[in-house]
């Protein structure tokens, strides 16, 4: 069963009486344990794709399924619930709660849903090398540490899918590599389906598959075109 599946998904926006097609009819799917990257120029529709995948907006046409279950056609409330249990978001800027310490960010997940058995908090923080920062607030740590904390937060609820929208945008390249490396490692180890949007083509070396978005059209890229692209 596919972790996430796009079936003829299309997204259009009305701008006055003009219609902008942000995402052309798209078919796409990935399995658990797969790490895919989506690259493409600004305004090409990458975020639109990712937010539809995360159920933050509904497609104009078509359907998104998560673990074989209808998702995009669900009610707002049900989608929110699915998002909580099945999807981990990692965003460009910090998506941490400013008034919670790193450890409390994870504890919040336990407070919202008390029933689920989750992995050891400190063990997870340790794996991401931020255990020592557990009592720090997001404003007290560096950008790279914040993104690792965001990854920890996303992994903690044991979701099926991880969606990362330019998670390295605010980091220097060394930190960016570290973060993507961790993302790749955890994807494999914890058997997640991870989609990462990035404009940094060098980061795709950690990915199993690379897609390119251009004017709302999603196309898989062959490994050859990537290495030639790297040279330019």
């Amino acid at each position: 069963m596919k972790a996430i599946e796009f079936i003829n998904v299309e997204r259009t926006f009305k701008d006055g009486d003009k219609e902008i097609v942000a995402l052309q009819s798209t078919n796409f799917s990935i399995d658990r344990g797969q790490f895919v990257a989506i690259i493409g120029p600004s305004g090409s529709g990458k975020s639109t794709f990712l937010t539809i995948a995360g159920g933050l907006q509904a497609p104009s046409k078509g359907e998104v399924k998560i673990a074989g279950q209808a998702f995009s056609s669900q009610s707002e409330k049900k989608r929110s619930r699915t998002r909580f249990s099945e999807i981990g978001f990692i965003l460009q800027a910090s998506n941490l709660v400013p008034f919670l310490t790193i450890k409390q960010q994870l504890q919040l997940v336990n407070k919202v849903d008390k029933k689920k058995q989750r992995e050891e908090m400190l063990e997870l923080l340790n794996q991401l090398d931020i255990k020592d920062l557990q009592h720090k607030y997001p404003s007290e740590i560096s950008g790279g540490q914040r993104q690792r904390a965001a990854i920890a937060r996303a992994l903690y609820n044991d979701p099926t899918i991880i969606l990362a929208d330019e998670p390295t945008a605010s980091l220097d390249s060394e930190k960016a590599y570290q973060v993507v490396e961790i993302l790749a490692r955890e994807t494999k180890k914890k058997n997640k389906a991870t989609i990462m949007v990035t404009h940094d083509i060098r980061l795709v070396e950690y990915c199993d598959q690379v897609f390119e978005m251009k004017d709302g059209v999603l196309k898989e890229k062959s490994p050859d075109s990537l290495s030639s692209g790297q040279g330019s």
């Binding site: 995360g54 933050l56 409330k77 929110s80 619930r81 699915t82 998002r83 909580f84 249990s85 999807i87 978001f89 965003l91 998506n95 941490l96 709660v97 400013p98 008034f99 919040l108 919202v112 937060r153």
Partner: peptide, 15 residues
Amino acid sequence: STFGVMKAQGISSGY
């Protein structure tokens, strides 16, 4: 924006 991020993470408006 903090509430928005939490809602994106699937934390309900009710909570």
